[in-house]
């Protein structure tokens, strides 16, 4: 059996042509290239079409609530900091329902690879606007257009404190695979803004639309330069830079906590006995 087969789980149920098929292929390839095993990693997913990727990837999986994947990751990492965790979901999950968690877990520099598939529309609930929909995007609800500005995922990730920020397009599978590998190897909060077409509900931002506009970042870009990265984040819609925008190192969540050094809480829990409370009693006499 090939490595890719090891990660195969249930067949996906997306519409033919959905960008998430490509994302699933890239993720499996990245995991295989890095020599990871299904029982060694945890994929935490939210709710939405992108999240359903979780059921087609054989590995430890926690399917949480809409928007709440990252707090679950935080809990997992507090209990077991060594485990490699991926958070997979879409624009509605990470930026609408989960916006608060997205910001604060990037501030924490939570050690997780965030794969944020962005099709600029709600697929699961059939065609409503997402936080990344263009302001003139019309839906069954926004019959006169969304009005609000689209959220800029890469810029939000940068100002929130992510230490790895990249952008890619599911049509550029080689690039996407390499970026996922880099995100998985990065120690800290890694965000990949993955542009992914929705063939059923977004007739504007189509595969061809993204393909025309996605342009790899040139070799002159200094990935450690936050201001240069922000410039690349604020693209115009005719020319969307893809690749690594930013990568830096700073302590990850838990590095500053004595209790999270050494043996993990999960390992210690296996040996906890009620006697551990005894030394605390003297504080109360």
């Amino acid at each position: 059996m090939s490595c890719l087969d090891d990660f195969a789980q249930y067949p996906p149920e997306w519409c033919p042509g959905c960008g998430n098929f490509d994302l699933l292929d890239c993720l499996k390839q990245a995991l295989c290239d890095l020599g990871l095993q299904p029982h060694e990693i945890i994929n935490v997913i939210g709710i939405g079409q992108a999240s359903k990727l979780g059921f087609s990837l054989k590995c430890n999986m926690f399917d949480g609530l809409h928007g709440r994947a990252l707090p679950v990751v935080l809990g997992i990492k507090m209990a077991n900091p060594a485990v490699k965790v991926i958070a997979t979901s879409g624009d509605g999950c990470f930026y609408a329902e989960g916006g608060n968690h997205f910001i604060h877990n990037l501030r924490r520099n939570l050690d997780v690879a965030i794969l944020a598939s962005d099709n600029r529309v709600y697929g699961l609930t059939k065609g409503q606007a997402s936080p990344t929909s263009a302001s003139d995007f019309k839906t069954k609800v926004h019959i006169e257009g969304v009005g609000a500005l689209p959220l800029n995922p890469a810029a939000l990730a940068l100002v929130s404190g992510a230490t790895f920020v990249a952008r890619t397009f599911t049509g550029a599978k080689a690039e996407a695979t390499e970026l996922i590998k880099k995100a998985l190897l990065h120690r800290g909060a890694a965000v990949i803004d993955i542009m992914s077409p929705c063939v059923s509900f977004n007739k504007v931002n189509t595969f061809a639309w993204f393909r025309q506009r996605a342009k790899p970042i040139g070799p002159d870009h200094d990935v450690t330069d936050l201001h240069a990265a922000l410039k690349l984040a604020f693209h115009d819609d005719e020319h969307i830079p893809t690749g690594v925008l930013y990568q830096t190192r700073r302590p990850v969540f838990g590095d500053h906590l004595t209790v999270m050094q050494g043996e993990s809480i999960v390992q210690r829990t296996l040996r906890f006995t009620p006697d551990r409370v005894r030394p605390l009693f003297k504080d109360f006499y």
């Binding site: 945890i42 935490v44 926690f62 949480g64 609530l65 709440r68 707090p71 679950v72 990751v73 935080l74 809990g75 997992i76 507090m78 209990a79 077991n80 485990v83 809480i265 999960v266 829990t269």
Partner: peptide, 11 residues
């Protein structure tokens, strides 16, 4: 949600 993640992981 954090507590649930930690409990899933075994804490």
């Amino acid at each position: 949600n954090l507590a649930i993640g930690a409990a899933y992981a075994g804490a």
